[in-house]
Design a protein around this nucleic acid. Structure first.
Lengths: 208, 208
DNA sequence: GCACGATTCTAAGCCAGATTAGAGAATCTC
DNA sequence: GAGATTCTCTAATCTGGCTTAGAATCGTGC
């Protein structure tokens, strides 16, 4: 609630308290990513975090505040991850190369690394309006990142000039986001998925 | 609940009763498509249908049964619509042409014609397990339809031989389904969307 | 070992919203 | 137009699940 954290005690590395808060948040992300907003019981989250439900209220003002935080963290981290991966791309890489790296980073993060990202994506359109404000700001930044990647690629002549890159971008993000609805790591390889999605961009948007 | 309908009375064209049932179902589809499973109140549905909430129970055994029916109808109708459009394609059309018609049909139906389809797509992953059984059967049929389209196109040499058409198909359906999350008919033209999605297939999957 | 804040627990409280009961209106049958 | 049936309403009831109260426990500084 407050902008200031509850005055972290002498703040040793990771106080027990902070760890518990983290455990609750992680549990919420996990349950939310699996069961969705409607199906997420505070009691499930508590169980997964190894506490009783009321303990959650020591760290979060309400169920919705907890959910909002998960959503925001999810959106935020995906963006950071993709930005980091892009920052590591060699100077001489082409705009199209950067686009393909972004596809790779987005998919791998969403599927392997983060319940938060999955929770964020799956529930974005299903939580009450008020919970969308803060996460939406993150998503706007993320959208811009992708827009810039596409603009650069199109200006460099690596994306067809007649392509509507706004629509294409939204379709692509949709394709990648929807993956969380069907992906099963046991039946398919992540590498193949990434390669296919990259092909969708390289051929679908790239110049012949 | 029973397999047999409640013994349709002398069954004139559309009895008043059937109309009311229909109105409730339509209302449910509309609310579900807009607010999602979690946000759909039976009272909202009732209001939209112009009845009091308990009246719903005369036609449906429970909230969940109502939701299930909407989901099933949505999945069913999309499939029928796409099948109809495909049936109307000239004999001499190529497999790729048929694929593009399917893209067109799917998008237009989902965005213009049917709250049921939108409700079905948006909530598929958010309703409790038990509600997914019947709709899932429909979706399986629909999946097969698309698989067949892709197989035919690949065998005809119109889709790159090295493309994993299963993954590509799922990505494409995801891109199209996710459209309901961002589409705003006031800011973009449906024609452009369809054209861009078709381009994604023609270039993304098609032979160079 | 004691005092005190931080943390977590058990036991209620509380309420939105689904569902049921049962009375009343509408419609149909003859 | 009386009686039966279908349909819809008002007025409860019921319940899951969020939330609050307040007591117990834990940890730490002195």
């Amino acid at each position: 609630m407050d902008v200031t954290e509850p005055a972290p005690p002498p703040t040793r590395a990771a106080s027990k308290s902070a760890q518990t808060r983290q455990r609750i948040l992680d549990a919420a992300a996990e349950v939310l990513s699996r069961k969705g907003y409607a199906g997420t019981r505070l009691s499930d989250v508590a169980a997964a975090a190894g506490v009783q439900a009321p303990a959650i209220y020591y760290y979060f003002a309400s169920r919705d505040e907890l959910v909002e935080e998960v959503m925001w963290v999810g959106a935020h981290r995906v963006r950071l991850h993709v930005e980091e991966r892009l920052a590591a791309v060699p100077e001489d890489a082409s705009p199209m190369d950067r686009l393909l790296v972004a596809v790779d980073a987005h998919l791998r993060y969403e599927l392997q690394l983060s319940d938060y990202a999955t929770a964020s994506v799956r529930n974005a359109g299903h939580v009450p309006e008020q919970l969308r404000v803060r996460p939406a700001a993150e998503e706007a930044l993320y959208s811009r990142l992708w827009r810039d990647l596409f603009v650069a690629a199109q200006q460099a002549g690596q994306v067809r000039a007649d392509l509507d890159i706004n629509i294409f971008r939204l379709l692509l993000l949709g394709a990648m986001n929807w993956v969380v609805e069907w992906w099963n790591p046991r039946t398919r390889s992540l590498d193949e998925l990434v390669a296919t999605a990259q092909g969708m961009v390289r051929h679908g948007a790239g110049v012949a």
